[in-house]
């Protein structure tokens, strides 16, 4: 058998938040990445409404699977395994994907892998940057999580959290500040755009947990968000215009400064040569730029997927699933739950 033919064809299902993502990979080759987003339905609420997201997942599931199969040029019956995000995420939203995955696994008589969303965000890197046969450090930043991880093998069953946010996730801070500035929802791309026309050095917003005695790899973004709110309110009270682009740029700089300093320091302390970025906030252009700069300075190789693979998608779930199949991990049972608070160290349910 050729190596290509022996690689598993895996369908990945992701429904932990507001994107119905279906991905298909063979080994570490991306064949399809179909996403149906309900983000527009949430915009007027200023955040993701779980019930709205869950309803959208149900509607989008089968059509998105079809779209992925067409993109990949495969039939469902060709698939070797089904992987699905089992957690963490919104309980009701996760459940739609988990139930669908079980049904596909049962109806196709293929193994099921209920995987961790966060580990999937890390694993998607393989699709773009190829296998990594050594340990690395990963900075995982999204609307729900901000963590620094030690990853002995990308797509493996082990993973250690070196530090995480103590309050808001980085993406959450972007959403809150965007709302404050009247930019809309979701905040990440809107702040990123506004910041391009602003001066990142114009306002000195605080860098949370950056003192010598603070935990080295933990984050805090709640104080930053409040500092931005106070600054903006003071301007408004004084009857002065709010320089939205400068505020956005200065806020963004404060977030990515802390993220990159700590991630690079973790990579150095762990003695690894690679830093990997993942999660929706890794799509931020300034984070990518600053991480590249600082990694280059430290002689660390930066691995970061293209923005479309950083945000939630099914390809990352399929990518992790394919690694688990390849390394003989035991499939999940048909009675696994969707676990909204699945611990980060549990890669497979």
């Amino acid at each position: 058998m050729s190596p290509m033919a022996s690689e598993a064809l895996v369908l990945g299902i992701e429904t932990s938040c507001d994107e119905t993502g279906i991905g298909i990979v063979r080994g570490s080759t991306l064949l399809a990445d179909a996403v149906a987003s309900s983000v527009a339905e949430h915009a007027r609420y200023g955040g993701v409404v779980p019930e709205v997201a869950s309803r959208a997942h149900l509607q989008a599931m089968v059509p998105t699977v079809h779209r992925a199969c067409e993109q990949a040029g495969v039939q469902l019956s060709d698939v070797d395994a089904i992987a699905v995000t089992a957690g963490p995420g919104l309980a009701g939203a996760l459940l739609v994907g988990v139930a669908a995955a079980k049904a596909y696994a049962l109806a196709l008589d293929k193994p099921l892998y209920g995987v961790n969303h966060l580990s999937a965000h890390v694993s998607v890197d393989l699709l773009e940057n190829g296998p990594l046969e050594e340990a690395c450090v990963a900075l995982l930043v999204s609307g729900g999580h901000s963590s620094i991880l030690r990853v002995p093998r990308v797509g493996g069953l082990e993973l250690t959290e070196l530090g995480a946010t103590l309050d808001d996730a980085a993406g959450e801070a972007f959403d809150k500040v965007a709302r404050l500035l009247g930019l809309g929802f979701p905040g990440g791309p809107l702040i990123d755009r506004a910041a391009r026309d602003g001066d990142p050095a114009s306002i000195a917003f605080p860098r949370g947990l950056s003192g010598a005695s603070d935990p080295a790899f933990a984050f805090s973004f709640s104080g930053l968000k409040t500092a931005v709110a106070r600054w903006v309110e003071a301007r408004q009270r004084a009857g002065e215009p709010v320089p939205v682009n400068d505020v956005a740029a200065s806020f963004q700089e404060a977030v990515v400064d802390v993220l990159t300093i700590k991630a690079v320091r973790a990579a150095r302390e762990q003695g690894v040569d690679h830093l990997l970025l993942g999660g929706g906030v890794a799509a931020n252009s300034r984070l990518r730029e600053l991480a590249a700069e600082r990694c280059a300075r430290e002689g660390i190789r930066l691995r970061v997927p293209r923005p479309g693979l950083c945000t939630d998608n099914g390809a990352m779930v399929a990518a992790l699933g394919a690694q688990l199949v390849q390394h003989g991990a035991p499939p999940s049972a048909l009675d696994i739950p969707a676990d909204s608070s699945m611990p980060i160290a549990d890669v497979l349910m």
Binding site: S54, H57, L58, M61, V65, L76, L95, V96, A99, A100
Partner: peptide, 16 residues
């Protein structure tokens, strides 16, 4: 929440 489990299951089996 429960209703959706049955419907997505039925839809996926029908599809598969």
């Amino acid at each position: 929440t429960g209703l959706r489990v049955g419907l997505v299951t039925a839809a996926a089996i029908s599809d598969a």
